[in-house]
Design a binder for these strands. Structure first.
Length: 552
DNA sequence: GAGTTTGAAACT
DNA sequence: CAGTTTCAAACTC
């Protein structure tokens, strides 16, 4: 039998006092004593702190049709610093009736998976008090033995009626108002601060990233302090941790890890932050952040995983296979990107939102999924499972190989031309015609002299768009019908690498000629066009498959 | 979803 | 006030 039920002297409590939660700003820090007087509706009146416990009682008669007003945890108030205070319906953010016991949610909790008993219910209205000033219930208890009339019960502790809870034998409702009044009195008799907020001051704003949290001084302090023994104060068992504040001198915890500079604490926040970001990204993807024809963004696996789609040799694979026989150390070339390094950077650099190259964004690995620690949700191309990192790598190699091949081919052509000239020279030597010699030189190497002079641009400074283009190149560009293509090509590592490679060849090859460049361009761009065309085809196929699948 | 762990609240 | 029990949330499997 409850002690309270036998010892309460209700008569002695008829000396009704009221808690005035409508105290104006700047008033007493906590409960104010005031005589009964007309008050706004929905304002709960509780005994004052200055009353003797024996005198405490509550005027609940007028509450039968009211709600026992909850207050918002401090951090939630802080959360909407730009919006009107949560407590505005009380006209004062200062006095709080309720205890935030176990109701304080970790800022990140809102973004995490709802707890089992919360997930099945509609939650919006419980968190709505932030905007409409309407006090809303926030939790659903599952009490079984306390009748929801003890502080074990979150609702009771929060100063609200149970409504829609899973509790058994609940007395925390209008129908049991008398019992509840009594319980409140007993609770206050036991501890006048029972319904006071436990956190002395505002914790950190939840908007602050978890990464920053670990480095930021949290200003709140638990009035009583926690007494944790096993949780290290890094689990929500700990009221301090739950309130997102550091443990303080008030705490009597053991093996506390909830202090500033704690590596364990930092790790916990970072892990939580990572999960939050993943969830946010996933939600964003599900809610339509991705294109209708794109696959749903997946959570990035820690380990790189090569998709098994197109496990057989695709067009790209076949195309790239031909490069294998040519690959003989070309990777050191400028056009050969250090994909390994780039992948590493991408994986560990949350800000690496810009892909290495246009192709890289299609590569089916971390580039098209969510980067841990990043809030950026990237578009997942339909080529995501088509084009692999290795394919890009191979493409780089292919372009280099082709470049070299073109150079070699042109060297042979030029050799023939030179021999032809030599022949002409010998034939004309007897004629001593300086004019004919000059003519022949102009025919063979019209640009060589130009390139040999100081006007040869430095490879780094070359603006590819200002360069003279071969008819073949122009033709290819016309094929593309898109100026941006060229811009993109010049802007990405792969193409610019090849460009630079070409330019280096051009500048380093003292007798490099326009014909050489033209041939190189023709070979490389033609092949590149073929590769892209293959990609487009595969993308279209995959896209159409996706659409069909979605329609089913 | 059931069972376990945890620490605040309640009780002695 | 310290130790124990009760309780329900948090957590694990």
């Amino acid at each position: 039998m409850e002690k309270s039920e036998t010892t309460l002297d209700l008569a002695a409590r008829r000396f009704v006092r009221h808690l005035d939660f409508t105290a104006v700003r700047g008033g007493p820090a906590y409960l104010t004593l005031s005589p009964p007087m007309p008050r706004p509706q929905n304002i709960l009146q509780l005994p004052t702190q200055s009353c003797s416990p024996a005198q405490l009682t509550l005027d609940f008669q007028s509450l039968s049709q009211r709600r026992w007003i909850p207050s918002q945890p401090r951090w939630q108030q802080q959360r909407t610093s730009q919006s009107p205070p949560v407590m505005s319906y009380l006209q004062s953010p200062r006095p709080q009736l309720v205890s935030p016991v176990r109701r304080l949610q970790h800022p990140s909790q809102k973004l995490l998976v709802k707890r089992k008993h919360e997930s099945s219910r509609s939650q919006p209205q419980h968190n709505a008090g932030l905007k409409d000033n309407t006090p809303k219930k926030q939790k659903h208890c599952n009490c079984k033995n306390s009748r929801c009339l003890k502080l074990y019960c979150e609702c009771f502790a929060a100063g609200i009626y149970c409504d829609g809870c899973n509790c058994l034998n609940c007395h925390n409702n209008v129908d049991n108002e008398a019992a509840r009044q009594e319980a409140v009195g007993i609770t206050l008799e036991r501890n006048l601060n029972a319904f006071r907020p436990k956190i002395a001051s505002s914790p950190l704003k939840p908007e602050v990233s978890m990464e920053e949290v670990s480095e930021t001084q949290v200003t709140g302090k638990h009035n009583k302090g926690c007494h944790c023994k096993k949780s290290g104060c890094l689990k929500k068992y700990c009221e301090c941790f739950q309130a997102n504040i550091l443990c303080s001198e008030n705490c009597k915890c053991m093996d506390c890890k909830n202090f500033e500079g704690s590596d364990e604490r930092r790790a916990v926040f970072q892990e939580e932050y990572r999960l939050v970001q993943i969830r946010q990204a996933t939600n964003a993807a599900i809610s339509g952040a991705v294109g209708p024809s794109s696959s749903v963004t997946h959570i990035t696996p820690k380990k790189r995983k090569i998709p098994e789609i197109f496990s057989g040799k695709s067009f790209i694979d076949q195309t790239f296979d031909m490069t294998a026989q040519y690959q003989q150390g070309h990777h050191s070339n400028s056009a050969c990107l250090d994909l390994k390094a780039c992948e590493t950077n991408k994986e560990f650099d949350p800000t690496a939102s810009s892909p290495l190259s246009p192709l890289a964004s299609f590569v089916s690995d971390t580039a098209n999924t969510i980067i841990p620690g990043s809030s950026i949700s990237t578009y997942r191309s339909v080529l995501a499972d088509v084009l692999q990192t290795q394919n890009v790598k191979n493409l780089c190699s292919l372009l280099v190989v082709l470049s070299g091949e073109a150079t070699k081919k042109n060297a042979e052509m030029r050799g023939k031309e030179v021999r032809k000239i030599e022949t002409r020279k010998s034939e004309a030597s007897t004629a001593s015609s300086a004019q004919s010699l000059q003519d022949s030189r102009e025919v063979v190497t019209p640009d060589c002299e130009n390139h040999a002079n100081k006007d040869v641009p430095d490879a780094v400074d070359i603006d590819i768009r200002k360069m003279p283009l071969s008819p073949e190149t122009l033709e290819l560009m016309c094929d593309e019908q898109d100026v941006m293509f060229f811009d993109n090509v010049s802007a990405n590592g792969v193409a610019i690498g090849n460009t630079e490679h070409n330019m280096n060849q051009k500048s380093s090859n003292s007798d490099g000629c326009t014909d050489t460049y033209a041939e190189q361009e023709r070979l490389i761009l033609t092949k590149f066009r073929d590769v892209l065309g293959g990609l487009i085809t595969l993308g279209n196929i995959k896209d159409s498959r996706s659409r069909k699948w979605e329609q089913k």
